[in-house]
Amino acid sequence: MKYAIWLPLFDELSDPSQIARLAAATEEAGWDGFFLWDQLWWRPPVREVSDPWITMSAMATATERLRIGPMVSPIARRRPTKLLRETTTLDRLSGGRLILGVGLGSDRFAQEYSKTGEEVDDRVRAERMDETLEILTSGWTGEPVRHHGKHFVVDDVRFLPRPVAGRVPVWLAGFPGNAKPVRRAARYDGFFPVNLTSPEQVEAPAAMLRELRGDLDNFDIAVALEPDVDPRPYADAGATWCLIDVDPATLRLADVQALIAAGPPK
């Protein structure tokens, strides 16, 4: 199993320079990845929030080995061609270390969609996300993109340069018990079941993914766990990555620094 730090860019952790220093320390301490929330704002008492994409650029230049990425980005609110350029550029800046975590997101956490006029219908956002993923994966090939969908149009445009490895790995997020995100994830590179309460919630999607794909070779299943939770039962259930989760309401820089310095679970 691989281990990563997973942080929201809130309050004491909203300084991109500080996050870049934390990323360098994370790499030095032997962790495998450092992933960021993608939020525009959050509920009180959180007041200060930073952009993960700009911050990841700083992280990329401060590290050499660490995998980085948004975990997860609600890409249905993004313009696909702009996201295509951003992901490729960030992947090349990092030397091919970007992992793109995506999901539908939800208005219920911070009303990010309703308060900005974004689409709140999950079905419509799912359509937009699927089209965006089609445009991304097509554009990363370097071949002309010809997409005429319900929500987006890209009319015979080639996007160069390509990502370092030819494409960026994509992990799909979803809540336990929901089969649709699992089926969607099977077409890509990873699955991130969120809000887990037991290792058994990993076993069912892992079995479904194995059936859909034939095997789980070159496929990741990531779980987010609090620092005091034993990751081994989740690894036994099929998880390949463990993202150490922190509570944004009580998040403190000193606690994160201590967590990083302690190194990944043994």
Rank of each mutant, 00 (worst) to 15 (best):
R65H: 10
G139I: 01
L13W: 00
H147V: 04
A62P: 12
R85V: 02
V153K: 05
R125L: 07
P205H: 14
P227F: 02
P161G: 02
P233K: 12
A126P: 02
P199K: 14
Q18G: 05
P8C: 10
E48T: 13
P80F: 08
R187H: 11
A110Q: 12
T116E: 07
Q39D: 11
L90Y: 05
D230A: 01
R232D: 05
G95P: 03
L83F: 10
G174N: 01
L90D: 00
F10A: 14
L253N: 10
V246D: 06
P16G: 08
E203N: 03
F10V: 15
D15V: 04
G95I: 05
A185L: 01
P176F: 11
W53F: 11
D156T: 10
A262S: 12
H147T: 04
A179C: 09
E118L: 05
Q39S: 10
L259R: 04
M208A: 14
P144G: 06
D15R: 04
R108G: 02
L22P: 02
L243C: 12
A179V: 14
R213W: 09
F35K: 06
S138F: 02
E27P: 11
W171R: 05
R167G: 02
L90T: 06
R79G: 03
L259M: 06
A62R: 02
Y113M: 12
D32L: 08
A186F: 10
R123A: 10
M129A: 12
P74H: 15
I99K: 09
L9F: 02
L209H: 10
A25H: 14
V168Y: 00
D32E: 03
W41E: 12
A110Y: 08
L136Q: 01
R213V: 09
F159M: 13
R158E: 13
L40C: 05
D189G: 04
E134L: 14
G166Q: 04
E203A: 02
E118I: 01
P74C: 14
R85S: 12
H151F: 15
A29Q: 12
V102Q: 00
E127G: 13
E28A: 13
H151N: 07
T61C: 12
E203Q: 12
A207V: 08
L36V: 09
K115P: 06
A235F: 12
E86D: 14
A4E: 14
S198I: 06
D230Y: 07
M1C: 13
R79I: 14
S17V: 09
G69Y: 00
G69C: 04
P199H: 10
E118Y: 11
G95Q: 15
L100Y: 11
V72H: 04
R47G: 10
D236S: 15
E48M: 13
W171F: 12
